[in-house]
Design a protein around this nucleic acid. Structure first.
Lengths: 215, 215, 215, 215
DNA sequence: AATGAATGAGATTTCATTCAT
DNA sequence: GATGAATGAAATCTCATTCAT
């Protein structure tokens, strides 16, 4: 999404350059934040990795927190976009969940740093991160809306049990994050298709042994 | 577990006193850390809440990080102890999971502060300055060992699918934490029995609609 | 006034020590501020001159501005106290003005640094010094009140012309400051009695009521 | 005086243009400096108000301090010029003082920004980083010279008391500044003639030689 | 000549840790 | 053992100045 902005025809060279540099800074910041967390990351480190002077960063972001928020916001934006895209493309609940699961897994595996930031702070309550909370809330609500449509019709059709959409979204995300965490943690390579299959099997059918596969 | 140490007969009064004061400090620290996170908590605050002089803290802990690690360690210790206790008490896989689910839910709801710290750190993927990951590793492995016994026999008995213990532990923990977080966040009151039931239902049976209950 | 606090019997040794150190810092700060002005004075300089670590300053003052305000406030406090003291002691307008002129001259000559700060910023409009303005206003009003009693009775007795107290206070202060400035500027030694006499001569022979106008 | 430079015939168009732009910058700078003081004014603000790029400023001034000094110098220059002009025009001491008083009052009321900067600096006693004192010294001496001629002849003619020219200049300036400050501060409208009269009345009836002393 | 992005020195402030009492 | 005053390293952020375009 952000990247696409760079290709927009209707930007001047200057503007494209500015956007490009901004992205360079964000890329550096993601790496530092992922490794050390927000509070232990210093602007010196970020600037150094971005190969800019410390002061230059402040021409692109108001302050350190802003950089962090931009990252979080971008990540959620990507998340939301991908869910939205899927929602538009598919018909059934199962298709919806399958697609999202795959997309999410893929994103997480390919963006370990973002994942790391995301999973590190998403339960923090520090004052400074209240703003993060509110961003997350906003996106969570939008995403939930997209799930809801599919969930409620699936419930109506007696495809799935009576589940609370809100919880289900958390639940689904939590399973996927767990998987991603596992693969990053153990430094394993991932076959997206296959892992998505496992996740979906458990999600839909649970862990009980069943001789006849129902999926 | 930690508390039991205080009652141990084989400690002198001095030692018991020391241990008691150490615990006082930890109790204060948990509250502060839970509220503000590690970096925004100051030793002044902790000392004040613990009703000790700031310097005194250093007679009980090497430094601020040590206090934090002690808390994390205690939390994982409690977690391990409770899993261990259950493992000793029950026979079947289902009993095992049911008990742990209930116990964990109860603990989380009743120890919001510890839960808050724990859930912030239980997924750390990089070992930053806080060195939480190495503690986590150790405990995670021990806990996985305890799960394994039940999982492998359940698989053998065709009670459950072929699941990877390692992932399952993460998975189980994650679901429960998600629930707890949800209830704390939305400030809802929790019926432990009932919620454990929901969790277990989804875990065992998945979300697909089934007219005839199989549990 | 402030100094007297140090001798108060009802303070513990600790408290007296604290007050003493605070004063040490203020003394250092006055010198730096006088020489360089508020904005060009650094805490490093102040700390060094006070022979304290930079951080120590913050155990006695909230921030740099606070140090400045304490100085301004002390100066005005001294000023007010001395005017008040005189007001209580004397009967006539002429005695009042004479005493104050002498006292002020003496203070200014003996506290060149304070004078320097005082005359440097008393017309500043920088945002940061708005607080200074309000302190100055408060004191100016109190001091004007003390003048008023003498002025109005002197006007009634036809000793002096109809003058606006508010302006007169400014005016009187301004004359004295001019003198002090001159002596500091030219680095001259001052005979307080004599200079006060000159000032008063100019001042009085301007404002004295005279039936036969000579202008 | 400075403005006249612009009309000088012996300048090329280029030079006149350069001078014009320099003045544009100074006009902007005066406004900013008056409002925020030297240190809280940024070159960004000045450049924006002057409608130039930040870098352009450096084609006209060596650095920020230079801009400030140019303003101070201009102000003192105007001050000196106007005193000089009056000195050339009038004969008597009283005319001299009357004219200067009116001129100064008028200038101050009509150039609040310049007045604000001027009155902040006219008493600097230590030559800090801004190096204002040395400019002040030079001008003060020149101005004193112009006063001296009138003062000494007036003393000789027994029009006025024996006064020190140096002090008298300060004194006169101080009274006027005090008035201007008062009117600006209280946001009062000023009748120049009338206020000049008040000032002169107080000033003269203090310093006029009077055979019959009333004190 | 005009520009404004890049820069880094330098300022304030915080706070974990030390240590003399 | 308990204390808290003293400390200075380290962090964020600002902004005058430079310089390539």
């Amino acid at each position: 999404m952000y990247d696409e902005l760079l290709n927009e025809e209707n930007l001047t060279r200057k503007e494209r350059e500015k956007l490009f540099k901004r992205k360079e800074i964000l890329n550096a910041a993601v790496k530092i934040f992922a490794k050390k967390g927000f509070d232990h990351s210093t602007l010196d480190e970020i600037a150094e990795l971005a190969e800019f002077g410390k002061g230059t960063i402040y021409n692109y972001f108001e302050n350190k927190r802003d950089i962090y928020l931009a990252i979080i916001e971008n990540a959620f934006n990507d998340y939301l976009s991908s869910v939205d895209e899927v929602a538009k493309k598919v018909k059934t609940f199962r298709e919806f969940i399958t697609n999202i699961t795959r997309g999410f897994l893929e994103y997480g595996i390919n963006n370990k740093e973002v994942f790391s930031i995301f999973s590190r702070d998403h339960l923090s309550t520090s004052d400074d991160v209240l703003k993060v909370k509110s961003i997350m809330d906003t996106y969570h609500n939008k995403i939930t809306k997209l799930y809801e449509k599919f969930i409620s019709s699936a419930i109506k059709n007696k495809e799935i049990k009576q589940i609370v959409p809100n919880i289900f979204v958390l639940f689904h995300r939590s399973i996927i994050l767990t998987y991603i965490h596992h693969f990053i943690f153990e430094n394993l390579s991932v076959n997206i298709e296959k892992e998505a299959e496992s996740i979906l099997d458990i999600l839909f059918n649970g862990i009980l042994y069943k001789p006849e596969r129902s999926m």
